[in-house]
Amino acid sequence: MSSSTAVRDLQRDLENKANDLGKIQKDIAKNHQLRKKYTIQLGENELVLKELDLLEEDANVYKLIGPVLVKQDLAEANANVRKRIEYISAELKRLDAILQDMEEKQNNKRETIMKLQQRLQSIQAGKAKA
């Protein structure tokens, strides 16, 4: 009888762990999406920066803010874009760190789940024999 309660406990434990794992996996997927978005933005900004560098000093640069085009200094635009690139790279790095952390957690969870499953199986096998 005690073994059956143990099995039940194990099963509940397993379920909880599986749920946690699912959560972590969802988070990771979300993180991936975010990362993708940032990567795209980074690429776009780099393109813009390249183009801005190619512009001559007196070129007119506008920024679209809402419905209006606002005239901007080339130097200012350049600085803005650079800052933005910096920000995005920092963000990407941060996301990477988070992602790594989460993956580690995921692996740990997976391992514990495997162990639990093994224990469950061994218990069940023992029962079947008995």
Binding site: E44, L47, A59, V61
Partner: peptide, 13 residues
């Protein structure tokens, strides 16, 4: 031409 460079930046070209 008014060219969109990306990221809402435009320039006269």
């Amino acid at each position: 031409c008014l060219v969109l460079l990306g990221e809402n930046y435009y320039t006269d070209r």
